[in-house]
Design a binder for these strands. Sequence first.
DNA 1: TTGCCTTTGTGACAATTGACACCGATGCGA
DNA 2: TCGCATCGGTGTCAATTGTCACAAAGGCAA
Lengths: 210, 210
Amino acid sequence: MVSTQSTTQFHEFEPKLIEDIEKTGSLKTLETGEELMRPGMYVRSIPIILKGSLKIMRQDEDGKETFLYFLTKGDTCAMSLTCCTANRPSTVRAVAEEPSELILVPVEKLDYWMTLYPSWKAYVFQAYQRRFDDMLEAVDSLAFRKMDERLWRLLKKKAALQEKRYVYATHQELADELNTSREVVTRLLKKLEGLGKIITHRNRIEMMTK
Amino acid sequence: MVSTQSTTQFHEFEPKLIEDIEKTGSLKTLETGEELMRPGMYVRSIPIILKGSLKIMRQDEDGKETFLYFLTKGDTCAMSLTCCTANRPSTVRAVAEEPSELILVPVEKLDYWMTLYPSWKAYVFQAYQRRFDDMLEAVDSLAFRKMDERLWRLLKKKAALQEKRYVYATHQELADELNTSREVVTRLLKKLEGLGKIITHRNRIEMMTK
DNA sequence: TTGCCTTTGTGACAATTGACACCGATGCGA
DNA sequence: TCGCATCGGTGTCAATTGTCACAAAGGCAA
């Protein structure tokens, strides 16, 4: 049972639906870096993010990774939707980018609520649509941009997430998210620093432009 | 009005639905290379592919392109689904890979049939799911694989589409689909030929392994 | 046949990125 | 304070890919 407090932020949901979500959903808290999902895991519930953000990553067979997109307040995971309906294991990794809170809704409700609540149906379709856009942006980044711009955009996204001027990450962590090496990130960060876009600190990067 | 012939291949659809599709859908034929959709275009109908295949490409601002995935018989375009429901223009390009036939279903039916026909709902969700998988594979290709393997896999996919041992394409066309240069493709094809995987001809590549 | 356009082949070189080695700086805990 | 693990900085070199220049080969039409 979830407190009314947490779900009333979804204004577009019917009161009855919010009630249903609170009744059947369970609250989950994640620390920064904690995993919600990993490749191979079967998903039996749909997460709706109340607070914080999740980083969605794709892994290859050797464990190499690449960042796909962030999920933030109000978002839900399209992978969970597809995995649940097809009863297949996840093919992505979801990890908390910051301390986060989410509601886990049992899969069975997905379909049932779609027929019952128009707002739920709209929400699910909007989720698909947004994740499609996110995936296309990930493709753009990989296909068309060089590492320096990919890094710069990643930093801006991370800063925007928490609306802060500091991004807390080591060079190695950034390298992992871009599927490159730590040295390359160090070099490119120095370049960005030379351009006056950032100031590097230990474990932390200061963003100089909005 | 579409002939019964063409839609009866969708065995999972209820007879009533097939009837409805035939009543409201319009048939469209595409020559190889003909465009069904381009970025910026508003989509007012959902295409269901009856014959042939479509190549879905992503473009950047400068017109550079990268291949995303193929749609074949029975498939529908998830982009159309998201674009229609959100009433936004397309962000991808769809072009016939071979002579193709499709049914165009008016957008209004999308929602209506979802409530009416369980099989249509399942079809739409399956479409989302499959395109998600396709996008993930595109990301894998871009993020984790080098150009030689990307080229080899593209050739295999193209050969599999038509179940033939010849792929009809110039080096320039392949280069465009992989967002690289013609010279690189030529070099890598020579390498594949050296490995005995293909034989190159003018305008045509002969696949040696299944 | 001749001319011309398209396609393919290739050498040389540059830019980007990846890999390795190694060192210095920072910060924490014993 | 010392020891140690983590993090960041840098030089060198290699692999991959992109770019340019130019030539050869294939095929079509006058």
